[in-house]
Structure formats: structure tokens, C-alpha cells
Simulated scan of single mutants.
Amino acid sequence: MITDEVPEAVPESDVLRYTAFATDPGGGNPAGVVLDATGLSAKRMLAVAAGLGYSETAFLVPGGPGEAAGSYTVRYFSPLAEVPFCGHATVASAVALADRVGPGRFVFATRAGEVPVEVDKGADGVLRATLTSVEPHVEEVGDVDVTEALGLLGWSAGELDAALPPRIAYAGARHLVLAVADRDRLARLDYDFDGLAAYMTARELVTLQLVWRAAEHVFHVRNPFPVGGVVEDPATGAAAAAFGAYLREQGAVTAPATLTLHQGEDLGRPGVLTVELREGDRRVRVSGAAVPIE
């Protein structure tokens, strides 16, 4: 167990390393996982996350909603700050638990709310987790805010996809959704790191969800994450859930629907996120594989 009593001696075996939304350790989004963080302060959690350097590390304490078996209280830290919810670290944590106790259902009590996670083993032997988001919502975003964000990205309004207007979407964390009309524009991402970090902090945004629509239910996405001290998140489950809610609210897809999001290709860490929208249920389900990083 990690404690503050030995601040410089964090046992290496206590910090697991998994990549989420990929079956290859070289793909997807790496996450740190501490399966029993009992007694660990927020200060030490942040120090562990900063030392690891991944976009997020999840810290689990056994016992959560109703103290039932399979329940955990979970906190997520980037190298710079705590975030209310992280999808890829949730998937990584659930698969890490399933590696030890077998597939099944877990319930994570997060700062954003209660998040159930189901883990199944496919015919290929790979464990895949499906998280169910908290209640999502979508907000309008003003023209001035959009113009400022575009300037920080080096984009122009004429490069946006008019069919997918800018919005702020939430499914556990806040994300500004900006859709471009051209795949090449998405590939050429180069932005003002400090300026965008300040912009996002002022609006309580966790990432920007930058998207290009390849087909009716297929999207390529990228997620700048300067507020976490990371240039770009390679695969972002929280943003995927928020984006699913956004698409439904905009009438861009009709539930029931299954969406495929490709992320990380431009970083050399390809990952695939599956987003499910069910009829009569506003919550969004996000699925993906996770494997240990050797």
C-alpha cells in the first residue's frame, strides 16, 4: 500500500501501467493504475501521477456505493491536477481488476458521479470494458469563445464543418467540441499550449474534442490536454462519451446507434473507442480493450 509516511519510496509494484482502447501496448492511451490507494493523500496522488507522466493515473480505494463487492472510490490525476473523471483510466482500471479477479461488473464512485463498468473477455482472449457515463448535457458556446479557441489552434472558421456546430459537451467532464470539414486540417494540429491552457482553465474545460466525420457513424478525433500538462491525449473516453451525447442532441445521429472513434493515429498510438447510444437512455456507453504495458 502506498502511504505518505515514505514519500520518496513508492513501491514500483503498486503502480500498474495499462494502455486503454488498444490491444497493442504501443497503441491507445497509457494510464497509471493504483488498485489500493487507501491512506494516500491528494498531494501524494499528484506526485505519483506527475512522476509517471501519463495523461492520467487512477487511484482506487476499495468500497464505494453501498460498500458492495466490486465497488471502488476512484480519483484521477493528471501530471498537473486532479480531474473529475477520466474514461481511459477507468477502462484501464477495470481491466486491471478483471486481470486479478476475473471479468464482471464494477462500480466506480467518482467526483462526477457513479460509473458502472462491465468487463468481458472476447473470443480473442482480450479483456474489454464498457463504462456507462453519468447523465450528460450539452451547452451552447458563444461566438467570441469559439473565435478565441480557433485563434489559439491556428484554425479559421471556414475550416469548420457547418453540420456539426461548436458546443460544450459534458459526460463527467467538460469538453469543447469543434468539428473540421477536412481530415488534413485535423492532422496538422499545432496550437498555443500556454494560451489554450489558460483559455480552458477559465472555462473549466478538460480537453478540446476536435473531430472529423469520415462516415455516418465513424469519426477521427484528437484531444489537446494542456490543462493536464499534456500536449495531446491519445485516446479519451470521457470526451467520447460527451461527444456521443453531443451528436444525439444535435440530431447528427439517431439512437440506437454505435459509433466508432479513431484516435491517436496522428501520434503513432492508434486506438479505437466504441460509443453506444441507446434509445430511451440518455447515458452514453464507451467501450474499449486494455492491455498491460510490459
Rank of each mutant, 00 (worst) to 15 (best):
residue 15 V to A: 11
residue 181 A to W: 01
residue 283 R to T: 14
residue 266 D to V: 09
residue 61 V to P: 09
residue 94 A to I: 07
residue 178 L to D: 02
residue 77 F to M: 09
residue 275 V to W: 10
residue 247 L to G: 05
residue 260 T to L: 11
residue 10 V to Y: 10
residue 204 E to M: 02
residue 139 E to I: 07
residue 159 E to L: 13
residue 55 S to K: 13
residue 179 A to R: 03
residue 161 D to C: 04
residue 161 D to I: 01
residue 132 T to Q: 10
residue 117 V to P: 11
residue 189 L to G: 02
residue 185 R to C: 07
residue 76 Y to E: 03
residue 112 A to Q: 08
residue 65 P to Y: 00
residue 181 A to C: 00
residue 250 Q to K: 12
residue 142 G to H: 13
residue 34 V to Q: 03
residue 217 H to I: 01
residue 54 Y to L: 14
residue 150 L to T: 10
residue 244 G to N: 10
residue 292 P to A: 02
residue 10 V to E: 07
residue 17 R to N: 05
residue 220 H to C: 04
residue 206 V to Y: 01
residue 178 L to N: 09
residue 2 I to T: 07
residue 71 S to M: 02
residue 250 Q to R: 15
residue 30 P to Y: 11
residue 74 V to W: 05
residue 132 T to A: 09
residue 218 V to T: 15
residue 57 T to K: 12
residue 83 V to Q: 05
residue 62 P to L: 02
residue 198 A to C: 01
residue 249 E to A: 15
residue 46 L to G: 14
residue 4 D to G: 06
residue 65 P to M: 00
residue 66 G to I: 09
residue 196 L to D: 08
residue 146 V to Q: 06
residue 132 T to M: 01
residue 234 P to F: 12
residue 202 A to D: 12
residue 236 T to V: 12
residue 117 V to H: 06
residue 90 T to L: 01
residue 204 E to W: 00
residue 184 D to L: 05
residue 75 R to P: 05
residue 55 S to D: 12
residue 150 L to N: 05
residue 5 E to R: 15
residue 17 R to I: 03
residue 110 T to D: 09
residue 256 P to M: 04
residue 140 E to P: 06
residue 193 F to D: 13
residue 3 T to R: 11
residue 59 F to P: 10
residue 261 L to K: 01
residue 130 T to Q: 09
residue 89 A to T: 02
residue 157 A to Q: 06
residue 208 L to Q: 08
residue 42 A to M: 10
residue 112 A to L: 10
residue 169 A to S: 11
residue 87 G to C: 10
residue 254 T to W: 00
residue 200 M to C: 06
residue 158 G to K: 00
residue 252 A to P: 08
residue 204 E to F: 04
residue 10 V to W: 15
residue 87 G to Q: 14
residue 93 S to P: 12
residue 221 V to I: 10
residue 289 A to R: 05
residue 204 E to N: 11
residue 291 V to C: 09
residue 236 T to Q: 07
residue 92 A to H: 06
residue 109 A to M: 03
residue 216 E to I: 01
residue 210 L to P: 04
residue 12 E to H: 11
residue 201 T to A: 15
residue 277 L to F: 11
residue 259 L to C: 05
residue 92 A to V: 11
residue 233 D to G: 07
residue 140 E to L: 14
residue 84 P to H: 05
residue 238 A to N: 14
residue 113 G to Q: 08
residue 15 V to I: 14
residue 106 F to E: 03
residue 194 D to W: 00
